[in-house]
Structure formats: C-alpha cells, structure tokens
Simulated scan of single mutants.
Amino acid sequence: MSGTVGIAASGGRSNFVHGLAWMALAMASFIGMSVGSRELAATLSIRQVLFFRALVGLVVILALGRALFPEVRRAARFRLHLWRNLIHFTAQYFWTVGVVLLPLASVFALEFTMPIWVTLFAWLLLKERLSGPRLLATAGGFLGVMVIVRPGLGMVDPAAILVLIAAAGYGLSMILVKQLTRHASAGVIVVWMILIQLPLGLVAALTDWRPVALTDVPWMLLAGLCALSAHYAMAQALRRLDASVLIPIDFLRVPLAALVGYVLYAEAVDLWVFLGGGIILLSNFQAVMAERRRVAG
C-alpha cells in the first residue's frame, strides 16, 4: 500500500517538474519568436517575416511530420481550417506589428486578454454559459487594459490597439481549433496551419518584398523554430499541469520580456504594464479557479 502511494507521489512530482520544464521552454520560445521577428523586421517587411516563419515551419514538418500526410490528404473540414488560418494569420500580422513598435513587456501583457476573448466567442459561437466569475474576469481584464494603455493621459498608441485585436483573433482562432479537434489530430491542425499560411504569407510578402541578406537567416530560424516549439511546449505543459497552475507561471513572460527588452533594446521598465498585467492575470486566475471548483463539486 505504502509502495503504491510512493510511486503515485513520485509520478505526480515528476509530472510537475516536467510540466514546469515544458512551460519554461514555451515562455523562452515565445520571447525568442518575438526577438527573431523584431530583428527580421529591421531589414524585411512584416509580411516577409510571417512568410519566412511559415517557411521554416514547412521544412520542419517535411522532416518530422510526414506520418501525418495521409490524414492531411483526407482534407476533413478544410473550410474550417481555412477560416481558422485566415483569422490566425491576420492576428499574427497585428501581433508582429506590436512586437516591432511596442516594448516587449507591453505586448505580452496585452496578449493576456486572450482568455477573455475566448470566453466571449465561446458564448457567442458555441453557446457556452457566461458564468459570474467569467463576467468578473472580463471586467477585470478590461480594467487591466485601461491601466496599461491609460487613455486620457495622452494619445493611445495605435499599436496597442492592434495587439488587442490580435489577442481577439487568437481567441477566436482557439475556438475554431476546439471545433477542429473533433475531426483532426493536433498534429494535422498544425500541418494545415503551415500549408495555408505559407502561401498567404508569400502573396502578402510579394506586395512588400525587400532584399534578403544572409545575415537574416539566423533570425528566420530563431523566429520559425521558436514559433513551432512554443505551441508544442505549451501543449506538453498542459498535458501535465492544470491551467490554474500554468496561468500564473505563464505571466512570468511579462517580467522576462521586460528584462530581454531592457538588455537588448534598452526599453524602460513601465510599472503600469506590470500593474495592468497583474490585474488581467488575477482576473483570469480567479475565473479558472472558480471553474475548477464548479467541476470538482
């Protein structure tokens, strides 16, 4: 009996440690993707940045994901894949604009509004119930955004609005992914993401093509590989840890991004960003904990 309990406890600790490791990789990957994208945007257009990120993803899929091709050829729910990726591609464009124009910490703090958008779209499209905690989380998220952008104290940076639109796009994309998981594996969803967004990126890039130098290649690899590893690592972390554990850990991206922005780009540390981001974090966290208690009860 005691031996069984020891094994279970050991397994739980192992899952926790592995989950933290995957989460650390996800956070590092998101920040690496933002740095690679910003460096590329110094010499290339943002449309080229999106194209080369997808191109690196295609190379990785051709090398590692060929076993998924039979399922891809069936093209189940292709229209839904198409809509999801049109929305996701647009959101990526706005997010990358934010990465280029805003301090990195501000981008990641504003991106934390995504769970609020997911809740809204789940209510509108999936007819999921809007609970009291979710409504409070939405109100808290709105307050946090107001603290970060501080309207009335000067002109609101248009790039901040674009990041909020990107967060809404990511939220809607997640709802569509939730629908796609009923018909396709996670790997196939990623493959379709690359196959659809690569030609989208190419067409967009050709409208604003700039000369590509050999010095751009390392940043392409950083942005493209980190884009794939970020989503893969996050999925692995979610397999091992509850969302209620991951949300506060994931918020560490904000101070880490502030540190990277300070070291690499001499960006000033804005305490309002941390205050507003903290409000958004706590709003989401209390909603997740309330949902967890409801399910447990």
Rank of each mutant, 00 (worst) to 15 (best):
L214S: 10
V60R: 08
Q179N: 08
S10D: 15
H231W: 03
L202Y: 13
A42I: 10
G65S: 07
G19S: 01
H183E: 15
G57C: 10
A160H: 03
S10L: 15
V177Y: 06
V60N: 09
L259C: 02
L281V: 01
V149F: 12
V149W: 13
M146K: 13
L50V: 06
F108S: 04
T113M: 12
I7N: 13
F52Y: 15
A266M: 06
W117C: 01
E39M: 15
R210Y: 07
P199T: 10
R182Y: 15
L82E: 12
T90W: 08
C226L: 12
V72P: 08
L206P: 03
I46R: 12
A41W: 11
P248V: 00
A296Y: 07
A137G: 11
A290R: 11
G278Y: 13
A205Y: 09
L282D: 04
S14P: 12
I175F: 00
V163F: 01
L252G: 11
T119S: 05
A257K: 00
I279M: 09
L164P: 09
L153D: 12
H18T: 15
L241D: 00
L104Q: 09
G169V: 04
L202K: 05
Q48G: 15
L40S: 04
L102S: 03
R150E: 08
L264Y: 01
S45K: 11
A41T: 06
A290H: 01
V118R: 02
M155D: 11
I46L: 08
I165R: 06
L264S: 04
Y93C: 10
L264A: 05
G297K: 13
